[in-house]
Design a protein around this nucleic acid. Structure first.
Lengths: 199, 199
DNA sequence: GTCTATACCGAGATAGAC
DNA sequence: GTCTATCTCGGTATAGAC
């Protein structure tokens, strides 16, 4: 693991890494502290709320990083359709390289604690909301109405999150590639319909 | 909770229930035993492999139950498209009724342990495979080629699994309904294409 | 801001009577 | 097949020196 950045950053990186392997309840603060080459004292200094607060920060920062990554794909490709396809394919590559580690610990953590840790649940919900918003923007920009754009974008995130589950479980990254094609096609279709309506 | 059936069945029911709230690592054998009104002795009698073996049986039996449920929808509706739509809508209702409990603990458990418990991972992968097979069958029956049928069926399961994550996280069952419409439309489109090719 | 020591609890699992 | 008692370990969190 990369031991870079401030103590706070290393703690978050180590937490994220552990979440990807074992989820929230499978992650111990002791193990996080060791992996981050920090101490429990430091952890409770930065995160007085303990494990839950550390998890919240990890979800928020990891979620934002994913959002930024999608923005990069949007900027580097010609359309939302292409960006979506590239994102799914990039995810497939990353999955294989990482030996099928969990690509979205946020989804895992959210499912584990949604019934019992409201702050952590809303943190995860906010992340998913931001991702949807990120994808809605370029769709609305090409003339798709707001509601349709939101439904399609949500479906793409569902497809992505579901493909993460199946791919990790079956150790088959191909799911992400075929699913990515559907997601891209779904976006392309919405764009076509919108431009046809404008004519 | 329903305290019915043999001790073994009650243990599995209680385990499933706890998985839906807290996942695998958040579930303790003691809590399971209490909820099932059994004892640790009984648990280790039926599941000598302990928690892991109990989880494996729970994943298998719960997975099969979901598969059977989909078969019922298939039998009671006129087409795979309708069955898919009905399944998603039924899930949305169940989610609200259950106060947004995890609708698919299998996905959660798989993500938590896929890197560390190979038997449990394959048990979950088998379940997802069976679900895909269940949906592939009626598609092939109406003339869709095997590969297309498999890709579409897989996408539907991804959509379902992803919608579970988002719906539970954001406490919004609407995601399951709109996503279900996309899933059904995707199936309907494949059916149309297949019949057009036959003409 | 970092460290160690420790309090306190609950985990999974086993033994052996019944 | 069921029960209780118990073993051993690791969990989160805190206290207080530095």
């Amino acid at each position: 693991m990369e031991l870079v950045g401030t103590t706070r950053q290393r703690l978050i990186t180590a937490t994220n890494e552990s979440f990807r392997h074992r989820g929230y309840h499978g992650t111990s603060v002791q193990a996080v502290v060791e992996a981050a080459e920090a101490t429990v004292g430091s952890l409770y200094h930065f995160f007085p709320g303990g494990k839950s607060e550390l998890a919240e920060a990890t979800v928020q920062e990891t979620g934002a990083a994913y959002g930024d990554l999608f923005s990069v794909f949007l900027a580097e490709t010609a359309s939302a359709e292409e960006a979506v396809r590239a994102f799914f394919h990039g995810a497939a590559d990353a999955l294989v390289e990482s030996d099928f580690i969990d690509l979205c610990p946020i989804g895992t953590v959210a499912r584990e604690v949604a019934s019992e840790d409201e702050r952590l649940r809303t943190a995860a919900a906010d992340v998913f909301g931001q991702w949807v918003d990120k994808l809605v923007a370029p769709l609305v920009a090409v003339g798709i109405d707001a509601e349709t754009a939101r439904d399609r974008a949500t479906a793409v995130i569902c497809l992505l999150e579901g493909a993460f589950v199946l791919a990790r479980t079956s150790r088959d990254a191909g799911v992400l590639r075929t699913t990515g094609s559907f997601a891209a096609a779904m976006i392309a279709e919405a764009v076509r319909e919108a431009s046809a309506r404008r004519v």
